[in-house]
């Protein structure tokens, strides 16, 4: 499997006269299997937008994202379904990672229903998530507002892992957490990567986090991406 971005550009507010602001242009990079690519840069430079484009939640103005050699915009339905399972995204704010009106178990079972997993297999998968994330079973009966940011972020990762992804876009996964919890989440991410060989695109403005996690790294500044040594 491969995930590659080629000459991505994104413009906002192009309007009738086509004079919108170009956030970034000609951004190209490839995510290597089992490796982490760190993406840093100042606020407002389009790091999160780039993450959303890579995960298929937004379309680029120019350029394309290639999954297994096929551009996202011209994928057939079956290919797109595979892409949707294999490329996931984890968001910055853990407090809105789960629907506030559903218990955690419902949010997890929903994903298992999507994967058509039921019966004993469903229980096994749920237990496995709790084991990976190191959380007790009682969290399943709680609502998101009754859990801490760190617990929610662990569960968010656990839920993503149910889909058996190959690539995860991590959009500032620790910036809303305090330092000790940050370290726990980063170690959890590293362990999961070592066990399952997942590639990460780690977006962060914290250079220390990027250096700790990444194998290669790029900086998005003034609309261009420069590859830098880690």
């Amino acid at each position: 499997m491969s995930l590659k971005a080629e000459n991505l550009s994104r413009k906002y507010g192009s309007g009738l006269l086509g004079r919108g602001k170009c956030i970034f242009r000609d951004v190209s990079f490839e995510l290597e299997p089992g490796k982490t690519f760190g993406l840093m840069g100042p606020s407002g430079e389009g790091k999160s937008t780039l993450g959303r484009i890579i995960s298929g939640l937004e379309s680029p103005t120019d350029g394309a994202v290639f999954f297994n050699g096929n551009p996202l915009s011209r994928m057939k339905k079956a290919e797109y379904t595979t892409f949707r399972r294999k490329v996931q995204m984890m968001f910055q704010d853990p407090t809105d990672a789960f629907n506030p009106r559903k218990r955690i178990k419902h949010s997890i079972f929903e994903v298992l229903n999507l994967l058509e997993i039921s019966g004993t297999e469903r229980i096994r998968c749920t237990k496995e998530i709790l084991k990976t994330t190191g959380l007790p079973e009682e969290v399943l009966l709680r609502y998101p507002s009754q859990l801490s940011g760190g617990q929610l972020q662990r569960l968010a990762l656990g839920r993503i892992l149910l889909l058996d992804p190959e690539y995860i876009v991590l959009d500032e996964p620790t910036s809303a957490l305090d330092v000790s919890v940050q370290a726990q989440i980063l170690h959890l991410l590293k362990n999961v990567q070592a066990e399952q060989g997942i590639s990460y695109l780690l977006i962060s403005h914290d250079e220390a986090v990027i250096r700790f996690m990444s194998d290669s790294c790029g900086e998005l500044e003034n609309g261009q991406m420069d590859l830098i040594e880690v």
Binding site: R52, S55, L57, R84, R85, Q92, A97, S107, V111
Partner: peptide
Amino acid sequence: TGYVKSARCMGF
């Protein structure tokens, strides 16, 4: 919100 974006990302 994050939960809608992740649901879209998961393919719901």
